[in-house]
Structures are given as C-alpha cells and as structure tokens.
Design a protein around this nucleic acid. Structure first.
Lengths: 339, 339
DNA sequence: CTGAAAGCGCTTACAG
DNA sequence: CTGAAAGCGCTTACAG
C-alpha cells in the first residue's frame, strides 16, 4: 500500500505537495497537480487512517441520477451481487452533486475513499468518462457503448438480435414494420435502429419516416405510440419497440383500444428484466440480462484495479425470444400490402 | 467533532483504550468496551483523517440481502432521492458479510465511516435491530414494523386499508373471499391478514383454513395460488393477494386458464410501485408508496443523527385504489352461495 | 487489561 | 508555487 511518501518520492515532490494535490489546494501548479494525480492513480493510492483503509467500489451516475428505471436497478443489483464474494462495499455516487469546486473526478474518488468506479453514463455525459479514462482511475462503463475510449464498456450488443427480430416479423409475412426508439439518442437505441434498417433494406422494404417513430421511454410514451400507429395512413402490421416500459405501455394501450395482439398488431418489445413474462400475451422480445451486465462490469473493474490490465471484456449479446405477442400477418392486411 | 481524546476524557480512560475499542482489540474488558462505545455512539464520534471525515449513510441489509424485489428497489430509490439535498453518500452494506469476528454493529459502522443506518430487516433479523437500538447508533427501520423497540420504524400501516378492501368486495356481493399471504410471516402480511379478518368477522363471514392461503411472494407463487383456487370445492369468488408479484402472477395465470377477470374472479392485489397500472385489467389494489417510505426513513434518520431526538415518525398509511380487476359477484355464484 | 509514549500518515501554518 | 517542520488524530509496541 503506497503512502504519500511513496507518491512524493516517485513524483519528485514533497509530501506536502502531494497532500495539497489530494485536497485540491488552489496553490499548486496544474502541471505538478497532474503529475502527482497520475502517479496516485497509477499506484492505486488510497488514504489510510492508522492501519485502516477503505475498500469502496462506487456506482457512479455521471449525469442525471436515475435509479428509477428497472434497467438501472437491475444493473445495480448485478454489481451488488458480484460484490458479495469480495470485501468491497458499494457506494452510490452522484458525480455532479459530490464533486467539489475545481476537483477532478479522481480527486473526488480519492477523497471518498473509492477504489474503483462503475460508471453509469447517460446521454451527454461522455466528456466525464473521457476525463476519467485519461486520469487513469480504475473504471468501467456499464450499460452504454462509447467508441474510441480507453475505458472498457460493458453492454449487450443489440444490433444483430434486433435484425433477427425484424427478420422474424418478415418471415411471418409482415411487410410494413414500424420501429419505435427513444427520443434520446442513446447508443443502444441507435444500434437497435441500425439492426432494423439492416433487415428492412436487405429484404427491399421501405423505411420511411412515417414508421420510424420516437417516443419517450416510459409507459405513457408507449400508449402515445399506439395512438399514432392506429391513425397512420398506411398502417403497420407490426412494430418493434426498443424500450421495455414503452413496449408494455403500448401492449396495454393497444388492448384497451380493442386491438387484438398479435392478430391485429404484432409487437416485439425489448426486455432487460423479466417483464416479458408478466405481460399478457407474453411479449416476444429482444432481451438482455441487466443483472449479469452488472456482474460482468464488476469482474472487469476488478481487472482494471489490479496492475496488470488484461482487458477482456466479455459482454453477452442480446438475444431474440419468441413469445405470444407476434403472429402471422392477417389475411386482409397482407393482401392490402402486397399490391 | 469529537476526537478520541474527547471520548477518552468523557469515559475516563486513555486514548489508547478508546482506539482499542474502536478496532475491536480483544484485550479490552467488555465492561470498558461497552462504556466507551456508548459514549462513541452518543457523541456521534467518527474517525477523522486530517480535516477530512466521511459522511456516509448506510442502507443495511440485516438478513438475506435482497436487492431484487421491486419493493426493496423502491425503498432504496427513495432513500437515495432524499439524500440528493444533502452532503451524504449512500453505501449499501450487507451486515452479515461486512461484520468482522466479534465486532458489534456500531463498531462496524464506525470502521466503515458510517454516520447513520437505514435498516432493511427481513423476517428473523429482529435481534440485530434490538442490538443496534441498545447501542444507540443512529438508525431507523424501513419497510417493517417492530413493536417494543427503541428504534423508529417506517412502514405503511396496511391493516385498515386491507379491511376496507375486503369490505369493498363484500359490498360487491362477494361472500366467499379468500386471502393469500406470504409463506414468511412478515409483520406487514400479518397486518393485512388481520384487516381481512376484521372485515370478514364483522360481516359474519366464515374464514376457514381453505381460503386463507400461503404462497411464496413471487409470480410463480401467484400462479400456484390460482390453480389451488380453481380446484377448491367451495370456490371463492374473490381473493385478496397481499403481495404485488404474486398478484400479477395470479392475474396472468387466471387469464391463461380462461378465467375472465373480474367476471369469473375478482382480484384485489397489493402494490408498492406502479405495477397495478401495467396489469390488464388494471388491478384494484391496496397501495403503498415505497419510494416515499424510503424518503421518510431518511428524514427520520436525520433526526436520529442530530442530538435532539424528537422522534416524530410520520409514515403514510396504505390506501385502497379501485381499478378493473374487481366487479359484482356473478349471478350464478351468488345464488350458489346464498344457500 | 490498561496507560504513557513512540510512531505513522496526513495536513498546514510558516518561510522563502 | 513549493518544502521543511510542527502538529493532529489515531494506532501500537512496551511496560506494568
């Protein structure tokens, strides 16, 4: 376990300076500050009281703290489960709230006694991840994909399963197939849209702006989606809804409006928990297991925390699961469409 | 902020002894250890490094760590939300895993730099709460009711709403009304059963063991419940299912078996999140808001942490919400039963 | 089982 | 902006 003395010696400064850097004292030149923090991060330094030292892993919200969604909860649960076999404790950190004045992220982590961070990024907080990556603090990103970044990202590749899902709809005779993605351009929604386009274009099917829809990722958004679908001029016979809450809301609203699923409308949802089994009819879905993503994130983080970083990210891909919300296209509609 | 010196002076021992107590060194007499810890807890002592000190609130699992259930997740979310306006960070602690050899709970909290604890107890971990209460470490119990304990308990009183729910079924003409409670005797399930008995006995309705059922609190449990209901000799026309997952599982299974809800069977569920709106038909439920329970728990904990404990626990009661899974008893059945 | 004292890790006025 | 040194909080061998 390195002490301030070790860090000081390695950086070529006094222990007073190291201490000032750790406490973000303003009177340190930024050049020295960066040099010291680089060594601090590289050596995995952590403040010690007597012989006691902390062993905390942080689950960090880089943007809007959103413990509310089932996906988020399942990720957290996964990290927590993985921690059970370790001596680490889990701390939930809201980066924007916990960070002080001019403090860098790794300074904040040091101050809180954190050894490694699982970053839960949201749309628009890529810059912070970049910063953490550059600082060399042991971290992984979970539930999102960031290209060109020196930080392992744990997510489920959902493009190919999305493509498979749409191809399944095509095999059932559907030709006019809509997709609904989140209003926010999360990387995973981008991937799912890409998978959809892959399948549609390969089968020579049109994808006009009428059937590529954007609704907020919650139940009301799904309800709103269905009202737009039924009033569309050339009404789709099937729809791929890339968010669990929106999918459930859509299934509910469709049935409230008297539509039969799958007879009047086939729906493929997206599921990161177990909600597909609770829906009625059970929901054909592109699935990912958020809990195991969380567990995998911890495994990779442990590897980051050890000195030898043999980054072997091993995220499981999303998969298609066929249930009862999809079926053959109705005779009438298929006749209509095969004009 | 008291230091070891303050604690030593107040207890009448040396700082060495205080340190030994905090680190659970074996060579301290249990008499002295208890005296020191009492002062440590009373004075809200916390280890300090330089000028830095921790500000951690713990969400503590006293028994089986079960971040898995929606109720648990919502409680955690509530505590986390409430913390947003504070300088505290939230740590998830598995008591059984984190506690060392002969360490007491408050020693463990001190070691981890924890200032206050929200205790998430499960059936059978009452003893630990008792211990913490006696030690005087700032704590509250959330999501459970412990009588005769010097610790505030934040929970929703669900007996009267349960009684109201059963009375509502009676007002719809139901006479043979079943109840399903968890196989584990949680205090809240005990309360709901009591509310059921209140209503039934007041209306002179029998509650034989055939209609007081116990199933595990998950979807499969609910499915199992329905299979038992339909094969019962004197089949109930309505059932009150006191767990959300079991209720959802039951609604699903009933409809899979071709039963119409509410025409063939009225169901009142229990909901601590928003799941009643997602079910189809929407589920008449006794409701509690787990998120606000979590927020309230933090409010009361803050009060415990301050020196003046004006314990004014203010938990909201559960309430009945009528949706579409309940209806008038069918003609035939009511004729059958009014024999 | 306990205290006086040495020691460790970190912080901070003081000096330049 | 930085270091040498005093100081603070805590821990721990040593002595009894």
């Amino acid at each position: 376990m390195p002490t301030v003395r070790d860090i000081a010696k390695q950086t070529g400064v006094s222990i007073a300076t190291v201490s000032r850097v750790l406490n973000n004292h303003p009177s340190v030149s930024s050049e020295v500050r960066e040099k010291v923090m680089a060594v601090v991060n590289a050596r995995r330094y952590v403040t010690t009281v007597g012989k006691r030292n902390t062993s905390i892993i942080a689950y960090v919200y880089t943007g809007e703290s959103s413990l509310g969604s089932p996906f988020d909860m399942a990720l957290l649960e996964g990290v927590n489960n993985a921690l059970k076999d370790s001596n680490y404790n889990l701390m939930i950190v809201d980066l924007r709230r916990s960070r002080r004045n001019g403090e860098t992220c790794s300074q904040m982590f040091q101050r809180l006694g954190i050894r490694g961070a699982v970053l839960r990024t949201t749309h628009g907080s890529k810059a912070v991840c970049q910063e953490i990556a550059e600082q060399g603090f042991p971290s992984v990103v979970v539930g999102d994909r960031h290209d060109d970044m020196q930080l392992p990202c744990i997510f489920s590749e959902s493009r190919s399963a999305s493509r498979e899902a749409v191809e399944y709809l095509i095999s059932l005779g559907h030709r006019r197939i809509a997709i609904s993605v989140n209003v926010v351009e999360d990387s995973d929604h981008v991937d799912r849209l890409a998978g959809y386009r892959d399948a549609m274009s390969q089968h020579g099917l049109e994808t006009d702006s009428q059937i590529i829809m954007r609704v907020p990722a919650h139940r009301k958004g799904g309800a709103q989606l269905i009202r737009r679908v039924v009033t569309a001029v050339d009404r789709p016979t099937a729809i791929y809804i890339t968010d669990p809450m929106a999918a459930v809301g859509a299934m509910y609203e469709a049935q409230m409006m008297g539509l039969s699923i799958p007879d009047d409308l086939s729906i493929i949802g997206f599921d990161d928990t177990e909600i597909r089994h609770t829906a009625l009819p059970t929901m054909t879905s592109v699935c990912q297991n958020a809990t195991s993503l969380g567990m995998e994130a911890y495994r990779v983080l442990l590897n980051q925390m050890s000195q030898d970083k043999s980054i072997s990210t091993n995220s499981p891909a999303a998969w298609l699961e066929i249930h009862d919300s999809t079926g053959q296209v109705a005779e009438k509609s298929s006749a209509d469409l095969s004009k």
